[in-house]
């Protein structure tokens, strides 16, 4: 495991000032992952999205990111200049966000948005022609199983359905062939039927390109089927880490609590369990 570690986060904290003193959205978390599918799950506000954004150095002031180190294939991202970090962002680590309705620029055509990413990470560094970029855009749209790529490239985000929008987003983020993809609730805004299609597509592309996937979700059943390992976050800390297919054997009372809150057919007719919290959970076991 040690030699093929892709991402290693050590002592990451995200802090925001507030009138009641600083609030820590992420508290001193550490984890490592290889080229595998790893999930971060937790409730809203548990710090999972902030963890993703902190890795990409996208915490906006007045928020601040504090970390001993964040290593990507050995490079410590916390020591990079903003300019170097921009090359990592989108180029080596990328992120697919929740809702394509908001995460695509409404006034730029789909093709122009994909082309922009290609230009920053492929076209400019390699001094390739515009035609090569347009070809790459169409190929990438084809790879995410979009029918009639030239037409979609000319269209604008408001003309796409949710599923198509998310495919476009995935295509855009994969153009520079990154090593790590972060997916921040990529299917939460989609219909259930479309969800599976998008997941399958993402799974296939991640496997084909040998990428790591950091999958952020609150959907425990989905994660246990889809990912290799699961990190469970509670109030800014990782409280448990386990294999995805062993999620039902989780030890931590919080994880057990979450699992018991899931509706199931076997418990029909009974009121759904709720979570009773314990101050002791905030301390990592």
């Amino acid at each position: 495991m040690a030699q093929d570690t892709l991402l290693e986060v050590d002592g990451l904290t995200v802090r925001f000032p507030s009138v009641h003193g600083p609030i820590e959205a992420v508290r001193d978390i550490s984890f490592a992952m290889g080229r595998e599918k790893i999930a971060i799950v937790g409730e809203s506000g548990s710090g999972k999205s902030m963890t993703a954004r902190a890795i990409l150095d996208l915490i906006r002031p007045p928020g601040e990111r504090i970390a001993r180190s964040i290593r990507l294939d050995g490079t410590d991202l916390t020591r990079l200049s903003p300019r170097q970090m921009r090359q990592v962002r989108g180029g080596r680590i990328t992120m697919v966000m929740q809702d394509p309705k908001y995460s695509l620029n409404p006034t730029m055509s789909v093709g122009a948005q994909l082309y922009e990413n290609w230009l920053i990470h492929v076209g400019k560094p390699k001094r390739l022609s515009r035609a090569a970029g347009q070809k790459a855009v169409l190929e990438m749209l084809e790879a995410v199983q979009i029918n009639d790529p030239p037409r979609v490239a000319r269209s604008f985000p408001h003309e796409l359905s949710g599923g198509m929008g998310q495919r476009v987003m995935i295509a855009m983020m994969l153009i520079p062939q990154p090593e790590l993809m972060i997916a921040d609730e990529p299917t939460s805004a989609l219909d259930v039927t479309v969800q599976m299609e998008v997941l399958k597509l993402m799974d296939g592309l991640v496997a084909r390109n040998g990428m790591g996937l950091l999958f952020i979700s609150h959907d425990l059943p989905l994660v246990s089927r889809f990912c290799d390992r699961v990190l469970i976050m509670y109030r800014g800390r990782i409280v448990e880490e386990c294999r995805a297919d062993r999620l039902h054997e989780a030890q931590h009372p919080y994880t057990q609590g979450l699992l018991s809150c899931l509706p199931s057919y076997a418990q029909r007719g009974h009121p759904l369990a709720t979570l009773s919290r314990d101050a002791g959970w905030e301390v990592a076991p």
Partner: peptide, 22 residues
Amino acid sequence: GKEYITTARVKGASEARVIWRH
């Protein structure tokens, strides 16, 4: 403050491009 601005930053666009173009 909108999400597509985060997308542009995720793509590694320069701050000038994020502000003036997006």
